[in-house]
């Protein structure tokens, strides 16, 4: 079976220096990076927004950088990204933020899409802020909505740009519990946590932790 995510001699100075690593379908992995900036850059590499200097990153068998815009969109819709601050679109209301990728990528009816989005937002305790703009929400609420949006399209690969800072223990546990439960919802789903602190994932269960140190996975 092809790896869900595969780094092949990936070079992007100074973050990746010949990095090799496969993330198999159905697995949970954590990548401990050397900082928040490195995690953010890895997200951009994984989504094909930042091309490598050398080597390849294959996502679901595709090198995003080599694909046309249309094909890139098709692959990206199969990847979910959870941004540390939620990564919400500021001029869209909470419900619109969650329904946007579904409206864009699926042919489902608006009513069905909204029903799914509301159910997800309820799951994260955001059912009472459906029509709020992200700017009116607390940081915690924005993160919760970010989770709901990443979960909504049922991605095959989900990447958490994980930041434990600013979260209380209860929230951290909720997010980890939801992340692990979501992983188990679909067989073959690949989950990758990117974090500078391995301790931020304490309590999430047992899974391989790799360190991205000096540009290589160790």
């Amino acid at each position: 079976m092809d790896a869900a995510v595969r780094f092949i001699d990936a070079v992007l100075d100074p973050v990746l220096k010949g990095a090799d690593r496969s993330f198999e379908p159905g697995t949970i992995s954590a990548v401990v990076t050397e900082g928040e900036d490195v995690s953010a850059l890895l997200v951009r590499v994984l989504t094909g927004l930042t091309p490598l200097e050398e080597g390849q990153v294959l996502i679901l068998g595709h090198d995003l950088v080599l694909l046309s815009k249309e094909k890139q969109g098709e692959v990206r819709r199969r990847i979910g990204i959870v941004f540390p601050d939620g990564g919400l679109i500021s001029n869209l209301k909470v419900l619109e933020n969650v329904t946007l990728p579904l409206l864009y990528h699926t042919g489902e009816s608006r009513r069905e899409i909204e029903r799914r989005a509301i159910a997800l937002l309820d799951r994260f305790g955001c059912g009472d802020v459906l029509f709020e703009l992200p700017g009116n929400l607390s940081a915690s609420r924005r993160r919760r909505v970010g989770f709901a949006r990443a979960f909504a399209p049922d991605p095959e690969v989900i990447v958490y740009h994980w930041r434990a800072g600013g979260l209380d223990v209860e929230e951290r546990e909720l997010f980890l519990r939801e992340a692990v439960a979501f992983h188990g919802d679909a067989p073959g789903r690949t989950t990758i946590f990117l974090t500078p602190h391995a301790g931020a994932l304490a309590g999430a269960g047992t899974f391989p932790i790799v360190h991205l140190t000096r540009g290589r996975f160790e």
Partner: peptide, 25 residues
């Protein structure tokens, strides 16, 4: 100013990462 704010906040990259081309949307 709206587009500039969105760009500085990384929202345009977020849209692209969702598979939604910014120019189109």
């Amino acid at each position: 100013t709206e587009l500039a704010t969105m760009k500085i906040n990384g929202e345009i990259d977020v849209l692209e990462s969702l598979g939604i081309p910014a120019v189109r949307y």
